[in-house]
Design a binder for these strands. Sequence first.
RNA 1: GGAGGGGUACCGAAGUCUGGCCGUAACGGGGUCGACUCGAAAUCGACUUGGCGGUGAUGAGCCGUCACGUGGGUUCGAAUCCCACCCCCUCCGCCA
Length: 426
Amino acid sequence: MLDIRYVRENIEAVSDGMRRRQMEPDLAPFVELDRRRREILFEVENKRAMRNKASEEVAQMKREGADISAITRKMRSISGEIKELESELSLVEEKLEEMMMGIPNLPHDTVPTGTTEEENLEVRVWGEKPRFDFEVKDHTTLGEELGILDFERAVKITGARFSLLKGPGALLERALINFMLDMHTGEHGYTEYLPPFMANRESFVGTGQLPKFEEDLFRVSDTDFYLVPTAEVPLTNVVREEILREEDLPLKMTAYTPCFRKEAGSYGRDVRGMIRQHQFNKVELVKITSPHTSWDELETLTRDAEEVLRRLGLSYRVVSLCTGDLGFSAAKTYDIEVWVPSEGRYREISSCSNFTDFQSRRAKIRYREKESKKVRFCHTLNGSGLAVGRTVVAILENYQRKDGTVDIPEALRGYMGGLKTIEPAG
RNA sequence: GGAGGGGUACCGAAGUCUGGCCGUAACGGGGUCGACUCGAAAUCGACUUGGCGGUGAUGAGCCGUCACGUGGGUUCGAAUCCCACCCCCUCCGCCA
């Protein structure tokens, strides 16, 4: 959510930002509602002041044993008026809130303007794409032939868009989780969390998934809980409604969680394999920073995520999302895309964003400035570090050999009991 | 699942029965600043919640208003009375 005062005084800048995102802004209703709100507020507060004063008088008169019937009769009608104004006020505020919730974050100046992912800006490329002197197999074929991936049985157990890992496949997934967590906690200074995999409505509103994107979420029936689509939700909400000390910032948190997404509206896309699943594992990075450092922190957070791919020797590139591809709550996002040989293209494996004060205003995450003692909103950032399932995909495909076996990247072998190669189960 | 107790500031806690100088809010602790001290401890003193609106320069300050778990209701007036919901704790039952 943007600052309502900022919107009030910068209608044009907000409209420009929305236009850059290919939206058609119409803020006239906002201006009118905002004006109306302050008008009612003025009136209702004046009447409340009268009531408060009268209330004191009545108490005084009663102590003196005076007759209070005249004043109470008058106050009865004032109270009625207050009640009417209050109900109108809450109606106006509800609509205003709804409108504010519908305004996306303003894209940062450095975000390229564009409509589709075609216009994302390539920032850097790392590593050599592997060259194969044989026909490459995709991860689905490789995994099934090696007996480590079983989609048929996953369908039997649950349904489409679920996967079943087995033997060295399951071990690979688990090794990656540990590898990533160890790197981020041991080398990059993040604190590890193991949060709940469900969160309540307030948490989802805090990070912006609700109310707008309910159709993407799995809701646990008979409860107010939703399955987390990313650890961003529980991690960012760790400090919801808290006032932090400036000297404690930035907070750097990491967590492994499974992620649950309905993937509504992606029917027919990536139906084969484990690229797009209803449940996948992810190690997430979250930072809570002061506004002064968040842009630097976005750069280092992205580097922290990239480092995982470098150690694994997987070729990737970093793109800066254009305004048309930028998420609702983000001011700027870098996607890290890993090379997928069977598709001959890069595929998103991490998304690193600065949400500035957009989430923290919704979630009331604030800090007290050391000098001025003023309370201000933090900036929140997050990024995948990395999506584990897609990392498995990348390893299987990039490290495949002609005979269908797959080498384990050296950095990972210590996490897999020294295993160097995945071979077909005998 | 059953029974009981509770939710007030940074923490603890009084106030609720009997509605009104009880809301920045008693009392205790913590924190910050200052005094004393070579320094520290002890002691003494002062200050320590946020939201919204107005004014002002988007500063300081000032004025008003809201918030005693949440939402309603009663009343001239609600932390206090009534209703609904949420959460926490203890005991019993069940349980990895």
